Amino acid sequence: MTSPIPNDPSNLHHLVQQFPQPGRLESIILRPERRAPTVQVDSVQVLMNRGLEGDRASARKPSAAGGGGKRQITLIQAEHLPVIAAFMGMHQVDPTLLRRNLVVSGLNLLAARALFKNEPMVLCIGEEVVLEITGPCEPCSRMEALLGPGGYNAMRGHGGMNARVIAEGVMRVGDFIICRAEHGRI
Rank of each mutant, 00 (worst) to 15 (best):
Val170Arg: 05
Pro4Arg: 14
Pro82Leu: 01
Leu25Cys: 12
Gln72Phe: 04
Ala111Pro: 02
Phe116Tyr: 15
Val46Asp: 08
Met90Ser: 01
Lys70Tyr: 05
His13Asn: 15
His158Cys: 12
Pro82His: 04
Arg31Ser: 10
Arg180Leu: 06
His13Glu: 15
Leu75Glu: 01
Pro4Ser: 11
Met121Ile: 05
Gln72Val: 01
Asn153Thr: 08
Ala85Met: 02
Arg100Trp: 06
Thr2Ile: 09
Arg100Phe: 03
Val104Asp: 00
Arg71Asn: 04
Cys140Trp: 01
Ile166Ala: 08
Pro149Cys: 00
Pro37Lys: 10
Gln77Phe: 01
His158Phe: 15
Val46Arg: 03
His13Gly: 13
Met88Cys: 07
Leu30Trp: 09
His91Leu: 06
Glu79Leu: 00
Gln21Phe: 06
Lys70Ser: 11
Ile186Cys: 13
Arg100Cys: 10
Glu26His: 10
Arg142Ser: 12
Ile178Ser: 08
Leu131Phe: 02
Ile28Trp: 12
Leu102Gly: 08
Ile28Leu: 12
Gly135Trp: 06
Gly23Asn: 09
Leu147Asp: 07
Cys140Glu: 04
Ser105Glu: 03
Arg24Met: 14
Arg50Tyr: 05
Gln21Ile: 05
Leu97Thr: 01
Met48Pro: 00
Val173Cys: 10
Arg71Asp: 06
Arg34Lys: 13
Phe87His: 09
Asn49Glu: 14
Glu127Leu: 10
Asp8Trp: 10
Pro32Ser: 13
Ser141Asp: 02
His80Leu: 02
Gly151Trp: 00
Asn162Gln: 15
Gly159Pro: 12
Gly67Val: 07
Leu123Trp: 11
Asn153Ala: 11
Asn108Gln: 03
His91Pro: 00
Pro139Met: 06
Met1Pro: 15
Asp175Val: 08
Lys61Glu: 14
Phe87Tyr: 00
Glu119Trp: 04
Leu98Pro: 04
Arg113Glu: 09
Ile29Pro: 08
Lys70Gln: 11
Val93Phe: 05
Val104Cys: 14
Ser10Leu: 13
Pro136Glu: 14
Leu123Cys: 10
Leu107Lys: 05
Arg35Leu: 13
Ala154Arg: 02
Phe176Ser: 14
Cys179Ile: 02
Cys137Ser: 11
Gly23Ser: 08
Met143Asn: 04
Phe176Val: 00
Arg34Phe: 14
Cys124Gly: 06
Thr2Cys: 10
Pro82Gln: 00
Glu79Cys: 03
Ile133Cys: 09
Ser141Gly: 12
Ala167Val: 02
Gly69Lys: 04
Pro136Arg: 11
Asn108Cys: 10
Pro82Phe: 00
Leu75Tyr: 02
Val173Trp: 04
Ser58Thr: 07
Ile177Tyr: 05
Asp94Ser: 11
Pro22Met: 07
Gln77Asn: 11
Gln40Ser: 13
Ile177Cys: 08
Val122Phe: 01
Ile186Gly: 13
Glu119Tyr: 09
Ser43Glu: 15
Arg60Phe: 14
Gly148His: 07
Gly184His: 07
Gln45Asn: 12
Pro20Trp: 05
Val165Asp: 09
Pro95Asn: 02
Pro9Glu: 08
Glu132Lys: 03
Cys179Trp: 03
Lys61Met: 13
Gly68Cys: 03
Arg185Trp: 08
His13Asp: 10
Gly148Ser: 04
Leu109Asp: 01
Leu52Arg: 03
Gly89Gln: 01
Ala65Ser: 15
Leu98Gly: 01
Gly51Arg: 00
Leu109His: 03
Ala78Lys: 10
Pro37Phe: 06
Gly174Phe: 06
Leu102Val: 01
Glu53Asn: 04
